[in-house]
C-alpha cells in the first residue's frame, strides 16, 4: 500500500471522488492555479478545469453562501476555507443557512456540502493562523464536525463526508499535514462518520483526543508506559458530532480514569462535553477526577506557542496525577 501524508490524502480523496461524481465543485481562495496554499487541491484545476475548481474572490461569506446555493440546486460543492481562522465572515451563512435549512423548511430543502478547513496550532501562525474553534460548530445543531488524525482516516472520512446527506465541517490538522504519514489504499474506501477508533489499547487510563493532539496523546501514552509501566488507552474520536459516546463509555468503564486532550481553550472547549457525557453516563466508574489538558483561556500566542499547546510532558503530568487515584 502506498504511504502518503495527510495533505496528499485530502488531495487523493478529492481527485478520485471528482472523477466519479461530476457534480462536485471545489471552490475557495487560491484553490485553483495555486493548488491551495497548503497544496491540498494541487492538480485539480489542471484536471477538471476552472468550472469545477474555482478560484473565488476573497469573500468567505460568498464562498459558503454560493456553495449552499449550488448544493440546494443539486451540485456537490466542497468549499475550502484557507484557514479556519478566516471562516468568521461565513459564520452567518453556516449558522443561519447551512445548519438550519433542512429543519427550517420542514425537510423540503436540504444542503449537503463539506466545508474543508485547516485548523490548529504548531506552525508558528500566531492568533489568526492557529485557532482550534471546533466548539463553535459542535454547538450548532444541524452541522456534523469531522476531524481526522491520520492519512487513512483523512481519505476515508472525507469520502464519507462527501457522500453524507448533511452539512459537514471537515477540519484538517495542518500541523501534521505533512508530518504524519501512513498507508492509504488507492481507490475507494470509507471510514464511517460517528465511530471512534481505539488507537492504543490499555487498562489504566483513557485518553480522549482528536486531530493533531491524537499524536501527542499517543506519545504521552508510550512515555507513561516506559516511565511508570502505565497502560493508557488512547481513543481517537474522529468525529465530534455525531460523537461516539458508546466508545467513550466503554473505555471509561474499563479504566476508570480519564484524560482529555485538545488544543482549543479549556473553557467551553469540546472536552467539557466529553466530561459531561462521562459524568452523566459513567460517573460510578470513575476512580478520580476527569482531567483536561488543553490550550489555555488566552488568545493563541506566537512566541510562546509551544507552551500553549498541550505537549507530551503536560499530558504525562496529567497521567501521573490521575494514576494517584
Amino acid at each position: 500500500m502506498p504511504t502518503i501524508n495527510i495533505v496528499q490524502a485530502v488531495n487523493q480523496a478529492l481527485r478520485e471522488e471528482m472523477r466519479r461524481d461530476d457534480r462536485i465543485v471545489v471552490l475557495g481562495e487560491d484553490v485553483g492555479k495555486d493548488g491551495g496554499v497548503f497544496r491540498a487541491t494541487e492538480g485539480l484545476y489542471d484536471e477538471f478545469g476552472e468550472d469545477r475548481v474555482m478560484d473565488t474572490p476573497l469573500a468567505e461569506a460568498g464562498i459558503i453562501g454560493t456553495a449552499i446555493g449550488m448544493a440546494i440546486y443539486g451540485l456537490n460543492p466542497i468549499p475550502e476555507i484557507q484557514f479556519l481562522d478566516f471562516i468568521y465572515p461565513a459564520f452567518d451563512q453556516i449558522v443561519t443557512n447551512l445548519a438550519k435549512l433542512r429543519y427550517r423548511s420542514g425537510g423540503q430543502y436540504s444542503c449537503h456540502l463539506v466545508v474543508r478547513a485547516p485548523y490548529g496550532g504548531g506552525i508558528k501562525g500566531g492568533h489568526y493562523h492557529s485557532q482550534s474553534s471546533e466548539a463553535y460548530f459542535t454547538h450548532t445543531a444541524g452541522l456534523k464536525v469531522v476531524i481526522p488524525a491520520t492519512p487513512y482516516d483523512t481519505k476515508g472520512l472525507l469520502l464519507s463526508s462527501i457522500r453524507d446527506p448533511d452539512p459537514i465541517i471537515f477540519l484538517e490538522p495542518k500541523r501534521i499535514y505533512r508530518a504524519v504519514k501512513g498507508e492509504v489504499p488507492d481507490g475507494e474506501f470509507t471510514v464511517p462518520i460517528g465511530k471512534a477508533r481505539v488507537a492504543r489499547e490499555g487498562s489504566d487510563v483513557s485518553i480522549f483526543a482528536y486531530g493533531a493532539m491524537l499524536h501527542v496523546a499517543m506519545q504521552a501514552a508510550e512515555a507513561a508506559k516506559a516511565k511508570n509501566g502505565v497502560e493508557c488507552e488512547v481513543i481517537d474520536l474522529r468525529t465530534l458530532v455525531p460523537l461516539d459516546t458508546d466508545a467513550i463509555i466503554a473505555s471509561v468503564q474499563k479504566t476508570g480514569r480519564v484524560v482529555i486532550v485538545h488544543e482549543a481553550p479549556k473553557t467551553s472547549g469540546f472536552g467539557a462535553e466529553i466530561s459531561a457525557q462521562i459524568a452523566e453516563r459513567a460517573i460510578e466508574y470513575l476512580k478520580g477526577p476527569i482531567l483536561r489538558v488543553t490550550g489555555y483561556d488566552t488568545p493563541f500566542p506566537y512566541t510562546l506557542e509551544e507552551y500553549y499547546l498541550p505537549s507530551v510532558p503536560r499530558v504525562q503530568a496529567a497521567i501521573e496525577k490521575i494514576m494517584q487515584y
Partner: peptide, 13 residues
Amino acid sequence: GNSDDEMLGKQMP
C-alpha cells in the same frame, strides 16, 4: 517576537 516587541511576542510577525 522578543521582549522588546510592542506586541509582547503575542502576534505573528
